[in-house]
Amino acid sequence: MIWQFDLIILSLVVICAVAAISVKDLLGAAILFGAYSFMMCLLWAVMGAVDVAFTEASVGAGVSTVLFVAAVFRTTRRTTD
């Protein structure tokens, strides 16, 4: 673990999480959640868990973002909170 990388990526993860639950647009929230998953995947690659990292990059960031975007297109983009 390199602690400079760790601190930068951890702060980016927290920023992406706060942005994903506070943005008013649901499509933007889905894309920010994908960015959050990619940052988490980088963090696990730094920690040496490469199998978890590429499973998260394919399943967590890829398939989850596709599911979110499909659900948002079948429902609505607008929200009040």
């Binding site: 639950i21 649901l26 929230a29 889905a30 959640f33 959050y36 696990w44 979110f68 948002v72 909170d81």
Partner: peptide, 21 residues
């Protein structure tokens, strides 16, 4: 605290990845 269902699901995903971390 969030009223929107998609926001609740995003919160559930954040909770799960926090435990994995």
């Amino acid at each position: 605290a969030k009223k929107n269902l998609i926001k609740k699901i995003i919160g559930m995903g954040i909770f799960q990845t926090a435990i994995i971390l």
